[in-house]
Design a protein around this nucleic acid. Sequence first.
DNA 1: CTCCATCGTTTACATACGTAATCGACTACG
DNA 2: CGTAGTCGATTACGTATGTAAACGATGGAG
Lengths: 133, 133
Amino acid sequence: MSDKSGEGAGEQPERISEAEHTVMEALWQRSPLTAQEVCEEVCGPRGWSLATVKTLLSRLVVKQAVGTEPDGKRFLYTPRIARSDYVGTESRRLVDRLFGGRAAPLFAHLAQSEALTEDDITEIEALLRELKS
Amino acid sequence: MSDKSGEGAGEQPERISEAEHTVMEALWQRSPLTAQEVCEEVCGPRGWSLATVKTLLSRLVVKQAVGTEPDGKRFLYTPRIARSDYVGTESRRLVDRLFGGRAAPLFAHLAQSEALTEDDITEIEALLRELKS
DNA sequence: CTCCATCGTTTACATACGTAATCGACTACG
DNA sequence: CGTAGTCGATTACGTATGTAAACGATGGAG
């Protein structure tokens, strides 16, 4: 089988960098967007120029993390990977790397470092109850 | 105040890369170690050469993440940052970046993606009970 | 039809990272 | 005393990342 560069199904997605992730967040929030619109969302907070956003968008297109759709002269950009997938992968990576794949130690750490608010605790209790249903 | 490059207390620690982290884990496991010994721990699993470990160690020394102590001809390397600090920082970064700083959504994600084992759940329940004590 | 504002694309460049070979100093063996 | 092994330090080099300017096409204003 020519797995040359076709689209098969077995492409493990390329890593998305932190700057790129910022752009993804904008697209997950609302899409499709033009480069201009993405910039309006993120350039301010990050102190970026439009050029930077354009670069990041191209790289994300190459990585197949966002897709384009022509709209007259310009493009509309849309995420091609779900936020939940990204978040899941990243979370898993962290848990694997730092806690030997076990979630409990991560939880313990968050608890100890006071990263858990009252609300978090209440919510987690609710989730636990659901899990045991 | 001269915050020039002295040692004050206000140095936010430089990022430790993934490869460097592998070396840190070896040192957290047991220390002090020689470069040789670190290599014995990690070169196999990662397919690294001793040279690579040496490079990573130097970079970690520059980043002040590990300290050295002369031992005759060679050095003994020791972590200068606690694993729990590193783990805490990294966890926080992830939670901030992906979950708006809230731990509950992270937890929900782990739960949904089946990243939680029975044991995890039991342990977390125990932790929760402790927190509410 | 001409000119300008915009697009996306290409090129740029500094720093970080992964991975390692090489080099100068020193020590231990013969 | 000379030589080989070992150590940390220096240098190397390709790719990734952050950040952006330059370029060529093109569509709309006049």
